[in-house]
Amino acid sequence: MIAVEIRKMLRRPRTWVTILMLNALPTLIAVLLALTDIGPRPGEGPVFLSSVLSNGTLFPLAALAVILPLFLPVAVAVIAGDSIAGEAQSGTLRYLLVRPVGRTRLLVAKLASIFVFVLLAVVVVAAIGYVVGVNLFGTASVAASVSGTTLTNEQIAVRTALAIGYITLSMLGVAAMALFLSTLTDSPLAATLGALAFLIASSLLFTLDAADALSPYLPTRYWLAFADLFRDPIQWRDITRGIALQGVYVGVLLSAAWANFTTKDITS
């Protein structure tokens, strides 16, 4: 069933249009940087963007940092919000369930296919970012880590792979939220917008000093911690916390989705 869901997701034109659009902004930024040669000052703008001008191999990370706060989670919310509600709307949910596909299995398969989508999107953005970066900015034998020491290209490659994994996991909280909402409603749009509201609320609370007590529990709190992978040595504290937090969100929301979906009358 997981394979079927993944095949279904890959066959949708929408999947590829979304991934293409995720690449548009980073590529535009790269072109502008290359043309003007004006990078943001260190410490300003998206992470890594300031170091890109001297080493194109860092551009995949800059591209991910550009899409991470908004574009990627929006794409995830669209795909995940559509997962059950979209099937309900197109009238295919009832046929899946009488095929029969167990309701629990269907939920798990949907989450797996969302995970594959995020991984695919992140890998494609990183890959296109690499091609664009190397072609526009060239390569250097070493790069400066965030801590100021130097990293070899090999180290950069390994850490970029880790960052891709971390970013993918970071999206699971939003995905689980959208999936849960998708079991509540027959409207994919409502599920997607609900998940986005959750995301925006989290981002907003994160900037509010009065909400400091909440901040360790906000789903977006540790998203940018992937930059810690490029410190020397790697600082794992926020990374592990980020992964654990996403795990908690996935656990709670998926249980809620399961409890709702397995006892629901399918009237769509």
Partner: peptide
């Protein structure tokens, strides 16, 4: 249910796929 064929309140298919593709997907799902 594997021994039952059903049509409930109108057909349901993925609109962007062909009929054959739809049948194949549904067949592979269970």
């Amino acid at each position: 249910l594997p021994r039952v064929g059903a049509l409930v309140e109108g057909p349901g298919a993925y609109p962007h796929l062909s009929g054959r593709r739809n049948l194949a997907l549904s067949d592979a799902a269970g």
